[in-house]
Design a protein around this nucleic acid. Structure first.
Length: 426
RNA sequence: GGAGAGAUGGCCGAGUCGGCUGAAGGCGCUCGCCUGCUAAGCGAGUGUACUCCGAAAAGGGGUACCGAGGGUUCGAAUCCCUCUCUCUCCGCCA
């Protein structure tokens, strides 16, 4: 959520931002409601002021044993008027708030203006695509042939976009999770947390998934709980409604969670393999920092995520999302795209964003500078460190051998009990 | 699932038969005084949001907030209803 006063004072900038983001939204109703709201608020508060003064007078007279019936009678009408105006005001404030909650974040000045992902500039490339003296296969063929990925049975017990992992496949997924968590906790200074995998509406609103994107979420029937679409939600909301001390910052958290996404609107996209699942594993990095540090922190967050790919020897590139491709809550986002030789393409494997104070304002996460009375909003950041399923895809496709086996990257072998190669399951 | 207790400011905690309680008292914190240093002591201050006045800052006015929402009333932290959460006991359970 943007600051109300900022929006009011910068309507033109906000309107231009909406254009840059290719969001079709008119600020007219917002301004009109704001005006109505403030006029009404003034009236209501004036009436309440009168009522409060009268109440004091009534109390005083009663204490002194005097009659106050005339005042009480007069206040009946005032109170009724207050009730009427408050009902009107309440309706306007609801609509006003609804609009405010649907305005996306202001992109950082360094974010390029562009229509869609084709306008995302590549800012960094690491390593090289591996060369094969055979035609590299896609992971779904490799995984099925090795008997480690089973799409058919998962579809039977659940449905499309779910996968059953077997044997070394399941172990590899688990190894990746542990490897990533170890790197981030032991080398990058993050504190590991294991949050709930379901959260309530308030938490979802705090990080910006609600109210706008409810259709992308899995909701529990009979409960106002949602399955987390990313650990960003429970982890960023750890400090919801808290005022931290300056010395508490920065906070670095890492968490493994499964992620659940309805993938509404992506019918027919990436239907094969592990790329787009309703349930996938992810190790997430979350930072709460002081405002003046957040862009430096974004750079190190990106490097922390990149480290995983480098350790695994996987070729990747980094792009900056342009305004048209930038997520609702983000001010700036880097996507890391890993090379997938089986599909001859780069695929997003991490998304690292600075949300500035957009989430902090919604989730009410503040801090107090030493010796200062006034509290300020923290800046929040997060990034995948990494999407585990897609990392497994990258390992399978990049480390495949001519005979269909998979060489296990050195960094993962300790996590695989020394296993060096995945061969067909008997 | 059954029975009961509770939810007040940064923390602890008081709020009588509804009325000068934004909220006693204590702790903490900030500033000042005092003091070889420290401790103790003394004095003052110490929530948030919205809104109005002010060019702005300073400052000032107002409204709201005692778990959340609704109701009764001229007036609610105090009374009523619904919900949420916490704790205790019983049951069940990984």
């Amino acid at each position: 959520m943007l600051d109300l006063k900022f929006v009011r004072d910068n309507v033109d900038r906000v309107a231009r931002m909406l254009q840059d983001r290719r969001v079709d939204m008119d600020m007219g109703p917002f301004l009109k409601l704001d005006e109505q709201r403030r006029a009404l608020l003034k009236d209501v508060e004036q009436l309440k002021y009168e009522r409060n003064r009268a109440s004091e007078e009534i109390a005083r007279r009663k204490r002194e044993g005097l009659d106050a019936e005339d005042l009480i009678d007069g206040m009946k009408a005032v109170s009724q008027r207050i009730r009427d105006l408050e009902a009107e005001l309440g309706a306007i404030e609801d609509r006003f708030r609804d609009i405010l909650m649907l305005i996306p974040n202001m992109p950082h000045e360094s974010v390029p203006v562009g229509a869609d992902e084709t306008a995302n500039p590549v800012v960094k490339t690491w390593g090289h695509p591996p060369s094969f003296d055979f035609e590299p296969k896609a992971h779904w063929d490799l995984g099925e042939a090795l008997g480690i990925l089973d799409f058919e049975r998962a579809a039977r017990m659940t449905g499309a976009r779910f996968t059953l992992y077997w044997g070394a496949g399941a172990a590899l997924e688990r190894a990746l999770i542990n490897f990533m968590l170890d790197v981030h906790t032991m080398r990058h200074g993050y504190t590991e947390v294991l949050p709930p995998f379901m959260v309530n509406r308030t938490a979802m609103t705090g990080t910006g998934q609600l109210p706008k994107f409810e259709k992308d979420l899995f909701k529990l029937e009979g409960w106002d709980y949602f399955l987390v679409p990313t650990a960003e939600v429970p982890v960023t909301n750890i400090h919801m409604d808290e005022t931290l001390e300056e010395d508490d910052l920065p906070k670095y958290y890492t968490a493994y969670t499964p992620c659940f996404r309805s993938e509404a609107g992506s019918y027919g996209k990436d239907t094969r393999g592990l790329i787009r699942q309703h349930q996938f594993n992810k190790v997430e990095l979350v930072k709460l920092v002081k405002p003046e540090q957040s862009y430096d922190e974004l750079e190190t967050l990106l490097l922390n995520a990149e480290t995983i790919l480098q350790e695994l020897g996987l070729h990747y590139r980094v792009v900056v999302l342009c305004t048209g491709d930038l997520g609702f809550s983000a001010a700036k986002t880097y996507d890391i795209e890993v090379w997938l030789p089986g599909q001859n393409t780069y695929r997003e494997i991490s998304s690292c964003s600075n949300f500035e104070d957009f989430q902090a304002r919604r989730a009410n996460i503040r801090f107090r500078r030493k010796g200062k009375k006034k509290t300020e909003l923290v800046h929040t950041l997060n990034g995948s460190g990494l999407a585990v399923g897609r990392t497994l895809v990258a390992v399978l496709e990049n480390y495949q051998q001519a005979d269909g086996t998979i060489l296990i990257p050195q960094a993962l072998r300790p996590y695989m009990h020394g296993m060096e190669r995945i061969t067909a399951r008997r």
